[in-house]
Design a protein around this nucleic acid. Structure first.
Length: 308
DNA sequence: TAGGCCATCTGGTCCT
DNA sequence: AGGACCAGATGGCCTA
């Protein structure tokens, strides 16, 4: 999208102001023409103090304030977009080349949180199909294709109906998700490389078998499509149930093991006091999360697929 | 060309 | 009064 640089929009804005000023001139003129002996209803004009028309300095001042308000609004929206971009990076299937729309980002984020919560509350190996179905719930077909593309799945297995409910149709779930022996790892039978349903753009393809590769030990994020810009989503590793590997500060890990890291909202530590998760004293985002000492490799597979 | 998505402007409302 | 937030309007770009 072609947009003016951050400092530039005032150029466009000036144009609009010119138009508006012209409109104002017209309206003032019309008002002057009406300014006879009768009011707007045709009745004799009432006496009394006239509504003072703003002077030039006042209109100039209001224009300046409008300019400033526009600039603030632009800045605010940029902040909002920055936040949204951050969100894009932590939901599955981030690509610089094919960005999720705002609404799809929010939907996917909601689904992602939901899917993770479900998995946590279950406290056991997640059902892969259910996980992905939850992820795709209510998403548009192109986004569903994108998510499927991330996992190298057949998107038709995750079609959503008109109510946004994900319907399963097709082969057995795991058949749909795993690569097939003897076939192109990135190409399940019946689906050539370009045969992901329409809307799927060049994107790094994940094969389920490839998910075993530890994400952050892979020096080359370019393993798949050359169109892929490299990983942006949070790398995940599953030494526990969900371990999100971020760039940890050097201090991280010092002073003992923390099962879970929380982001630093005040009161979070108290919130987690009686929880089965332990919270780091720094109060940071959950990087490592261990549930009941269990280890579920499949979850690593799932997330390894999403977060190359 | 229609429709989706987006950035920006704008005026209203609420809050400090 | 002024700033933050919001929603509607508008126009540009892109894609099917």
């Amino acid at each position: 999208m072609l947009t003016l640089p951050f400092e530039e929009p005032h150029l466009m804005c000036e144009q609009r102001f010119d138009m508006r000023e012209a409109e104002d001139d017209i309206s003032h003129r019309e008002e002057d023409e009406r300014d006879g002996d009768q009011d707007d209803d045709g009745l004799p004009k009432k006496r009394g103090p006239r509504k003072k028309r703003p002077g030039k300095s006042e209109t100039d001042r209001s224009k300046v304030r409008r300019h400033e308000a526009n600039a603030r609004e632009r800045s605010r929206m940029h902040g909002l977009n920055d936040a949204l971009e951050s969100l894009r990076k932590v939901v599955p299937c981030y690509s610089k080349t094919q960005k999720l729309s705002k609404i799809e980002t929010l939907r996917l984020a909601k689904n992602y949180i939901w899917a993770l919560s479900e998995t946590l509350s279950a406290g056991k190996r997640p059902d892969l199909l259910a996980f992905v179905q939850t992820l795709c719930k209510g998403l548009s077909q192109p986004t569903t294709n994108l998510v499927a593309g991330c996992l190298q799945l057949n998107a038709r297995n995750f079609l959503t109906d008109h109510n946004g409910e994900v319907m399963f149709s097709g082969r057995a779930p795991y058949d749909a998700m795993y690569s097939y022996p003897g076939s192109d790892v990135n190409t399940p039978p019946g689906h050539s490389a370009g045969s992901l349903d329409s809307g799927a753009k060049p994107f790094r393809h994940y094969s389920y078998s490839g998910a075993y590769e530890p994400y952050y030990e892979n020096p080359s994020p370019e393993g798949g499509s050359p169109h892929f810009d490299g990983q942006m989503s949070p790398p995940m590793n599953f030494n526990g149930i969900f371990s999100l590997k971020h760039d940890d500060p050097p201090e991280y890990g010092k002073g003992g093991h923390y099962g879970m890291r929380y982001c630093g909202a005040p009161g979070r530590a108290a919130l987690a006091h009686n929880s089965m998760y332990r919270v780091s004293p720094e109060g940071r985002f959950p990087y490592d999360l261990h549930v009941r000492g269990q280890s579920f490799q499949a979850q690593g597979e799932v997330n390894g697929s999403f977060h190359n």
